[in-house]
Design a protein around this nucleic acid. Structure first.
Lengths: 179, 179
DNA sequence: CAGCTAAGTATACGCCCGTTTACATCCAGA
DNA sequence: TCTGGATGTAAACGGGCGTATACTTAGCTG
């Protein structure tokens, strides 16, 4: 028998929600799916998180930022960003936060959460790391290209980029990052 | 009294659907909203189009391509594309097809329609117009940047680009368009 | 070991969705 | 003018959703 442990159950729900939201987006995931995946009862979602939207908020807020990719030596940033973006052409993004965000936009009840998180956890840190003139505008543009690549992959299917394409992408990001 | 005219009613439904889908995306629009906006009865959506998904398909298929922007002299294409993209930073895209597509992705029942339309009405014509090596890859990248900019505008709000930003965007598209 | 509290469960509620059905109304052709 | 098929309407159906409620049960505490 499963032992009763509020914290553990809460965590299972959170983990299941993170996975599912990332994979299918906010609206496609039902609280019943989450509960089943977490091997918990549906009512516990409401009990522990208040509502589905709040659970989503907690998932998204709990994700680490994207420092791992965007951090590091600014000199080679374009190339690293380009390579990371290139993998986005044929693979789901590693970062659950990006997945969740790009798949859940447009839903009124979580739009505010998404907006806040995209600004505070991605664009703002990136802008700070970039520095220089128009840092925020550049960060915004880089973010846009990232999300767009993900959208296109999702829409028309994966695409394995050639070396030449990664080069082109690098050049694109260099231009996007130019102050 | 409203005269009975199957074609006219069908057209009103189609127009209402086009507007609403473009504005709110597939899932946010209900058939009741469409019927009300068209001043018609809900049941007629099913009667005239079969289903909501098929109505969406007809809307998207009926949209003109994006030749108006992407057509014209290839020499100045980057600049024109950049300027068009720049307006996307603070304005809804003029093209209803792009609006509908970028707002309705991820819904299983219309994914196939979207995929087909994005390929055949946007990326393919653009690739043909671009010509040169890796035309499809370049078209894909340009499309991605377009969609990404729209996504970011929708997520974090509109942003009026400066002249310098349009220049940067131009440079970005030049790189994206480079064979 | 009894009992109470916290954890978990089963179920139902109310809502909105897309779709279907049964019916009302209009109007062209006889 | 009568009538039957086309057009439009109202209402309901069935299902899924998020959420709320009443209940059961496990496990600690005295």
């Amino acid at each position: 028998m499963k032992t009763r442990d509020r914290e553990a159950t809460r965590q299972r729900l959170l983990d299941a929600a993170r996975t599912l939201f990332a994979e299918h987006g906010y609206e496609q995931v039902t609280v019943r799916m989450i509960a089943t995946a977490a091997d918990a009862n549906v009512a516990l979602v409401a009990r522990y998180f208040g509502s589905k939207a709040e659970l989503f908020g907690e998932v998204v807020m709990g994700e680490p930022g994207i420092r791992r990719v965007f951090g590091g030596d600014p000199a080679t940033l374009s190339r690293r960003v380009a390579e990371y973006a290139a993998t986005r052409m044929h693979l789901e993004p590693e970062s659950p936060i990006l997945r969740s965000l790009e798949r859940s936009a447009g839903h009124p009840e979580v739009q505010a959460i998404i907006r806040e998180r995209l600004r505070n956890a991605i664009m703002e840190p990136l802008a700070r790391h970039l520095g220089g003139a128009h840092a925020m505008e550049r960060a915004r543009l880089v973010t846009a290209i990232f999300l767009g690549i993900g959208t296109v992959r999702r829409m028309v299917g994966p695409h394995v980029p050639s070396t030449a394409e990664v080069d082109r992408l690098t050049a694109v990001f260099e231009q996007a990052l130019t102050p």
